[in-house]
Every structure is written in structure tokens, then in C-alpha cells.
Design a protein around this nucleic acid. Structure first.
Lengths: 193, 193
DNA sequence: GCAGTATCTAGTCAGTGACAAGTTGATGGT
DNA sequence: ACCATCAACTTGTCACTGACTAGATACTGC
């Protein structure tokens, strides 16, 4: 950002690197991420980012952690299950880089305490979505069904697999009508044999 | 495999590299894939794989292509939509490496003709699943709903996000009962406000 | 048995992640 | 006012990787 730094310290390197990383991931995927490139963009030496994130995995773990907190915040305070699904999809489209990294465990340090804590916060919000449902015999399975539907839809949107069906509609709107189709019985309740 | 080759030619390097690549990806993810490592495993020089796959992206594109054909074959000849979903999930658990690579577009050469052709063959099978459904007002949306559900479930299984709920049940069995829950109206048809 | 081609080797280059050791600047205690 | 301590950053280096080039070797059709 600052054209020619005069200070020895960058001042806000951590945030600067994080933001640049999100740009790169959203544009070209996590594979294109290079710590040295991020350092160049921030105008610091090649080893500077390592001080904040330890290594490449550390950076991606930090992004995933941030992602889970953003997701928890996005879901919080929504009473209805269906609308929670819509918000899940919206989160994925608004934060594609976070979403991708969160669900690619081989990029992350799976046992990182902060990551686990953030993941648990988001998980609690997901569970809260089905808790208030009336007359659900198996709440856990129902929750997983709902999660699968929203997650699958979001993933297919981000991977460009349903562009044709979307047309120019917003993914979250399409998802809302899709769930309407499911929950109002317009789908065959049972397709036999 | 062969402890000390005497022949100059490997004989089946392409298949050998592909198989080793699938092992690595299934065990450590696509990020851990190294052409040089694959060459070492096959006992050939570091540049030999490049002759068959051009570059890293080429190798992954070949894997994705193979994956789409395996998926099309797995889905073919199944009349019922629900059972197609089960087979989709089974494909993902039986071929986790293929599945991961197929849905990570940033790893692939998206415009590769063979990839596109294989993708279209699989896509046709997916569409065929909803074609025979009775009384579906919006077949396309219903198809995307079904695909989202199966894809989301498969993805969450592979990323280790629903291990706890699965217990020791096979993912495909769990998915079968999950869809039963949806299609027999045990879920509230509408949860409003 | 010969030409042409597919397969593989050997050598090289720039880019990368990780690490070690040193430099700069900020902070807080006395 | 001083200094110890620590965080933030730099410089230098190493092993490894993907990609490219030129050349050696084996197979195939004729």
C-alpha cells in the first residue's frame, strides 16, 4: 500500500498479508498462494510474513479460523432453519476464499486450538438451527441433511458447476426457492421401487 | 515396483504414475503431490512423467477426467433418483482422490477437451436421474436440489466434518436413511417465521 | 534392417518454503 | 535517563519443486 515505507516496521503487516492472501485465493485458488509473493505485495522482506503466521499452513489456518467466526456471526440470531441455509449460502458467496480454505483440511493445522474453538462456535450455531424445529424425530440427522443441502449447493456454486441454472439470479435467492420446492412437498414424497 | 529395472522403458509409466498420484492425494491431499516424488516412486528420472502429462496441471486434469468417467459409470443404469444419490456418495468414498480433484477447478485445465467430454457424460447421467420423476414442476431445480444434497453430504464426509454423526455406519447407508427422512415427510413441511 | 517416433535421461534455471542469525524499534521497569 | 527485553523485520542460505531443453534409447511399421 504505502509506496515507499520509511518506517522499519510495517505497522499492520498481519492484516495486510491476510487481505492480500484472500484476494489471491479468491482469484486463483489456494494453490497459487505464495508467501514470498504476499511479502512483495506488502513491500516487506520475504521472511516477514513467517513471523506472524509461522508458515504457509499457519497462514491458511488463520484464514480458516477467521472464516468460522464470520460464519458463526452470519448465522447468529436467525430463528428459522431455512433462512439459516440462505445465510450459509450467502456467506460462501461473499467470502469464497474463507469458505474454500475452511473445507480443505489438508491445507490446515487441524489441531490448532484457535481453529478448533472457532469451529466449535460455528458448529453450535449450526446445531441451534434445528434445535427449535417441531416434531423432528431425529434432530441430528435432520441437521446434517440441512447442512448437506446448503453446503453442497454453496460448493457447486463456487466451483462453477451450476452457473447455467443460476442464470443471473443471486445464488441465495435460487437456494431460497429451491428449499421452498423441498419443504412444500412439490417434490415427490416418495419415488417408488 | 520392480526393484531394479533393466529395461530402459518403464513399460507402464502412465498408469504407474496415476496410481501413485491417487495414493498420495487420498492420503495427504493434492497439495502434497510432487511430480518428482512420483517419478522417484516409479523409479524413473524426474522429467519422465512430464512426457505423459505435460505438467502438474495436466496430471490432475487426467485424474479428473478419469473421475468423471468413473462417476458416469457408477450412476448408469440406476432407475431411482434416491439410489443414484446413494451411488454418488459411494463414488466419493470409494474414489476420494478423484472426487477431490474433480471439484477443485483451480487445479485443472478447465478447457481441456477430454475433461469437458467426460464431464458432459457424467452430467448427462445426473440429469437422467430426475428425468423420470413424476409430477415435478421444475425438474432442473429438483435436480440441483438432489445434486446439492448428495454432493454436500459427500463433501462433508470426505472433509471429516460429520464423523461423529456417522459413528461406524457406512456413509452411503447413513445417506440412504437421511433421504428417507426427507422424502417421507418426517421433516416439517414448512417451518415458518 | 532401417527410418521415424515414442519414451525416457541428464542438465539447468527460476521460484518457493523453511530456517538461522542478525538488525531495528518499541515498551516498560527502575 | 537508562537499559533490558521482546516483537517486528531483514539478510542469507538450503533443499526442493516445476518447467524447459537437448540428447540417448527402445519400439514399430515398412
Amino acid at each position: 500500500m504505502s509506496p515507499s515505507r520509511k518506517t522499519y516496521h510495517h505497522g499492520d503487516l498481519r492484516q495486510s498479508v491476510l487481505a492480500a492472501a484472500l484476494d489471491v485465493i479468491a482469484a486463483e485458488g489456494p494453490g497459487a498462494l505464495s508467501l514470498r509473493d504476499l511479502a512483495r505485495r506488502a513491500g516487506v522482506s520475504h521472511a516477514a510474513p513467517a513471523h506472524h503466521f509461522k508458515d504457509r499452513t499457519g497462514l491458511l489456518t488463520a484464514i480458516a479460523t477467521e472464516g468460522y467466526d464470520l460464519l458463526a456471526a452470519a448465522l447468529a440470531g436467525t430463528p428459522e432453519l431455512r433462512e439459516r441455509g440462505v445465510r450459509y449460502v450467502r456467506f460462501a458467496t461473499e467470502h469464497p476464499a474463507h469458505f474454500q480454505v475452511m473445507f480443505q483440511p489438508d491445507l490446515l493445522r487441524a489441531d490448532d486450538p484457535e481453529l478448533l474453538a472457532a469451529k466449535e462456535r460455528a458448529s453450535a450455531e449450526l446445531r441451534a438451527g434445528v434445535a427449535g424445529l417441531p416434531d423432528v424425530p431425529d434432530a441430528r440427522t435432520a441437521g446434517i441433511a440441512a447442512w448437506s443441502l446448503a453446503h453442497g449447493f454453496a460448493t457447486l456454486v463456487l466451483t462453477g458447476n451450476i452457473e447455467a441454472a443460476l442464470g443471473d439470479r443471486e445464488p441465495e435467492d435460487y437456494f431460497r426457492s429451491l428449499t421452498g420446492l423441498l419443504f412444500t412437498g412439490q417434490l415427490p414424497q416418495k419415488d417408488r421401487s
